[in-house]
Design a protein around this nucleic acid. Structure first.
Length: 220
DNA sequence: TGCCAGGCCCTCTTTAGGGCCTT
């Protein structure tokens, strides 16, 4: 069954929802489906809520993916239907903006799975996504790798559990996001680095980041 | 730890190609 924090019903406008999917492959347009989703709510850099659930989309998980994620066909067979889980996940996110590591990937599955709800699809399907991978490339160009695990090692982030499970990866991405927000504030003397500023930072070229951030400060 | 796709980014580029990153 889906797991929630008992003290947080859903996100509010001040939250950022950090999301991670485990899936059967890389592309929903090629028939791949989500097998697990986790969402971590951040407020001012602090985790204030969690959502996590396996989901049964009725498709087989390839052996390579079973060993890669540790999520087996038997595990998803006992999980709630994907539609139920996605509806609950969307309610949990509410109107909060989203963040993921390599957001292009998670956005595709977020939109594809919610689209399967048809007329019941919530407005969260159109939520903007910021990307910790793009932001890390802007902020830490010297890093030899910008994989989530490599970023965690670079910054000495605390272990969150088994890599390639949704909640552990979402927790790690949330910790990386908090570090990115802190570094943006320190490096560019920003009072805060909310989702809108993150979107500006990831949309510019690396060399233009200082200029874009200065403009953001002046506009604030 | 591989393949599938797709977006971003770098360079030996821009009339392109290939690596990275996600599962």
């Amino acid at each position: 069954m889906p797991a929630f924090d008992a003290n947080v019903a859903h996100a509010d406008c001040a939250d950022i929802a950090v999301i991670d999917f485990e899936t059967t492959g890389l592309s929903p347009t090629m028939g791949d489906r989500a097998t697990e989703v986790a969402i971590v709510l951040l407020r001012s850099g602090q985790v204030v809520g969690r959502f996590q659930s396996l989901m049964n989309a009725g498709v087989r998980i390839p052996p390579f993916i079973e060993s890669f994620t540790g999520i087996t066909n038997a595990m998803v067979a006992a999980a709630p239907p994907a539609a139920q889980v996605m509806a609950e996940a969307a309610r949990f996110v509410g109107r909060a903006p989203l963040v993921a590591h390599n957001a292009a990937f998670d956005r595709r599955f977020w939109q594809a799975e919610l689209a399967r709800l048809g007329d019941a699809a919530p407005p969260a399907a159109d939520a903007p996504f910021a990307c910790t991978l793009l932001l890390a490339r802007r902020l830490y160009p010297q890093a030899p790798s910008h994989k989530l695990g490599a970023m965690a090692a670079l910054h000495g982030l605390a272990p969150t559990g088994r890599a390639h499970r949704a909640l552990a990866d979402a927790e790690m991405a949330a910790a990386l996001l908090a570090r990115i927000q802190a570094d943006l504030c320190e490096r560019f003397s920003l009072p805060e680095a909310g989702h809108a500023l993150l979107m500006q930072a990831q949309a510019c070229q690396r060399q233009a980041l200082p200029v874009v951030m200065r403009r953001a400060v002046q506009a604030a």
